[in-house]
Nucleic acid binder design. Sequence first.
DNA 1: ATATAAGCGAGACGGTACGTCTAGTCTTATC
DNA 2: GATAAGACTAGACGTACCGTCTCGCTTATAT
Lengths: 189, 189, 189, 189
Amino acid sequence: MPRGRTRDTDAQQRILDATIDLLGSRGAGQLRMDEIAAGAGVGKQTIYRWWPSKHAVVIDALLQRSTKETPFPDTGDARRDLRSHMRGVVRVFSSPTGALIRELVAESQVDAVVARAFVDRFWQPRRDLSTAFLQRAIERGQVRDDIVVEVALDAIYSPLWSRLLIGYGPVNVRLVDDVLAIVWPGLAA
Amino acid sequence: MPRGRTRDTDAQQRILDATIDLLGSRGAGQLRMDEIAAGAGVGKQTIYRWWPSKHAVVIDALLQRSTKETPFPDTGDARRDLRSHMRGVVRVFSSPTGALIRELVAESQVDAVVARAFVDRFWQPRRDLSTAFLQRAIERGQVRDDIVVEVALDAIYSPLWSRLLIGYGPVNVRLVDDVLAIVWPGLAA
Amino acid sequence: MPRGRTRDTDAQQRILDATIDLLGSRGAGQLRMDEIAAGAGVGKQTIYRWWPSKHAVVIDALLQRSTKETPFPDTGDARRDLRSHMRGVVRVFSSPTGALIRELVAESQVDAVVARAFVDRFWQPRRDLSTAFLQRAIERGQVRDDIVVEVALDAIYSPLWSRLLIGYGPVNVRLVDDVLAIVWPGLAA
Amino acid sequence: MPRGRTRDTDAQQRILDATIDLLGSRGAGQLRMDEIAAGAGVGKQTIYRWWPSKHAVVIDALLQRSTKETPFPDTGDARRDLRSHMRGVVRVFSSPTGALIRELVAESQVDAVVARAFVDRFWQPRRDLSTAFLQRAIERGQVRDDIVVEVALDAIYSPLWSRLLIGYGPVNVRLVDDVLAIVWPGLAA
DNA sequence: ATATAAGCGAGACGGTACGTCTAGTCTTATC
DNA sequence: GATAAGACTAGACGTACCGTCTCGCTTATAT
C-alpha cells in the first residue's frame, strides 16, 4: 500500500451529482466551477485532476445519468416500439438531463472539442441503437429497405431536438404521435 | 422630431457588419464587444445605447442579413418548390449567417430573452411563410389535409437544424433529397 | 456687426453659478460636465465654446466668486490688519469657495496647465497683495527689514492651506491667533 | 493557520513597486490599474483582493517606501536637529515619494476615506515624532513652553507642504533656512 | 420679405479606465 | 501523498465620464 492519504473515490461521484443538481435546478449556462466544487465538498483541483474542463464533467454527468434511461423495447411491432422509445426521449428532455444536454449543445457551438465529445460519446452510441433497431425492422419487413437509415432517424428524432434547442414548441407525447403520423407512411413497408 | 444629434445609422450598420465579419470568420462564441466596437470604429457605449446585449446585436445582424435569403418559389409543383426552398436553407446554414444562428442558439440555452427574441423575430416569421406554403399546397390538393402542419414542417426542416447544431452529419443538397424521399410520402395527397 | 445670433452672455453666468452650486453642495471631485450643463440649462458645447476644459470653468468660477472676498484693511496696525485678513481667509476656506479651491488643487497635482493657471490667476494676485501689505509694514518700521518676504508669507498663510488640503486640523479663528503668536515675534521690528 | 494558498507576498511587493515606478516616472494622476497589474505581472483581481481601491495601494506604497526616510537626529541642539529633519523632508518631496504624496492629497480632496487614511497612517505618525521632538526641546529649555505645539509645527512644516501642493515656489534647502530664520525667534526660549 | 449665418439646447459619438466576474492553474496546511 | 481551501493570472464584461460632433431651432444681420 502506498503511503499518504488514499484517494477519495466517492468525490468523483459527488462532483457529477453536484453538476447535475446545479444544472438541473438553475438551467444551462448557470454552472460555475466554484459552485460544483463547493457543492461536492471538493477542491477545484480535484475536479481538474479527473476532467480537463468544465464541459468534460458535464458530459460524464450526462453519460452516467442517462445510461439506460431510454431503452428500446422489442415487442415485434416496430411502430409501437419506436413510439415507446420516443416517449422515453421526451421524458429525458424534460428531466434535469435536458439541461445537461442544452448546456453541451450550447458549448458545442463554441468549442469543437466539446462538440466532438458530445457526438462521439453521447449522441452516436444512442444513434447506433436506433440504427440497429431500424435495421432489424427492415430485416423483418416492417420498414422499407430503400430508405437512407440515417436520414430516416433524423426525420423521426430531430423534431424533438429542434424543439428542445430552439424552444418554439412543446416536446410532449402528443408530438410523438404527430411525428409518427407524418413520417411512418414513408417508412412502412 | 426629437432634439439632439440623431442616431448615426452608418455607425449602426458598421456595428452589424463588424458583428457578421467577426462571427463569420471566427465562428460562434468568438465574438467580443471590444472587437465589435473596434471593428466598427465605434465606442462600446454606442452599441449599448441601442442594443441591450451582445446577442441583441447578433439578432439584428441576422435579421438584416437574412432578409429574402431563402424565398419560396411558386411553380405550382409543391414538392419541387419545397426542395428549392430547402436548398436555400442549406446555403444559408453554410454561409456566415450559419455562424450567427449557431451563436444565437447557443445563447438561447442560457438566456430566455434571447431565446424568445430568436423565435419571435427570426424563426417564427420564416416558419409562417413555410406554413402558408404548406397550406396553399393543401388547398391545391397536393398535400393531405389531415396532417398537423406544424409537425410536418418539423419533419421537413428539423433534420437540417439538428445537423447544424449538433454536427453529427453534413448539411447539403443530398440531405434535402433524402429527407424528402422519406417525408413526402406521408404528406402527398 | 457680424451676422448670426448673438452670444447669450447670461448663459456664461449660469454656467459659473451652476459650477459653484454643484461643487459647493457636493464637494470637490463630484463635478460632472453633464450636470453643469443641465444645471445651467445649457448645452455642453456652449461651455466648451468659452472654456477649454472643466477646470478652466472652475478657475473662472473661483475668480469671480472670490473677488474682494478678503480685502486688506489698513488701520496702521500691521498685526491687527494681518489678523483681520487671515480671518477672512478662514471664512473663504469654509465657504463653497473652499470646495472650488480644493477641486483645483486636486487637479493641479495631475494637470500642469491647471496648476499654472491656478497659481497665475488666483494665487499670485492674492499673494501680491499680501506682499505689498508686508512691504508697507516694513517701510513703516513695523516689520523687520531683513526677512525674506515670500517665506514670511508662507509661515503666515501656509498653516491654513495645509489644513484645508490635508485636513488634519481645524481652520478657524483660534488657529489665526495661534499662528500669529508663533510667527509674529520673528517678524516684528 | 487558515488553509489554502497563502497570500503571495512577492506579488504584493511587486504591486507596490510597480505603483511607485509608475507614479514616480509619470507623475500623479497617471496611475492606471491595468498598468499596475501588468507591471507587477499580476491580475487586477489580486490587487482588488487585498486593497479596496487604487489609492489604498498608493498609501501602502508610500508607507513602505517612506519608513525611516526622515529620521530625527538628536545632537542636543534643537535648531540644528530641526534643520536636519526639514532637509530630509525636502529630499523626500523631490523623490518619487513626492509623487505618491501628491497623488494622495489630490484624492483626499475627493475621497474622505483616502483623506482619513492619509492623515491617520502617514501624516499623524510623522507629526507625532515631530511633536515629541518639540516637547523634548521644550523640556530642555531650548524652546518656549507657552506655545501651541501643533501650530508651531504647522509654521515650520506647512511652507514645504503648500509649495509641494500648489507649486508656487521651490522646495529646497534654501527654503528650510529661510523658514527657520522667521519662525525660530518665536520658538526659542 | 427673404436668405444667410452664427449661437443655441439636446444628446449621440469615439475613447479610456474603471471595478467585477469566472475559467483554469498553483500553493499551502491538513488529514 | 492526496486533499480542501483558496490565492493566482488572464481577459471579457458592462458602466461612467470626458471632450467632440451633429441635429433642428432660434435669433440676428444683410440683401
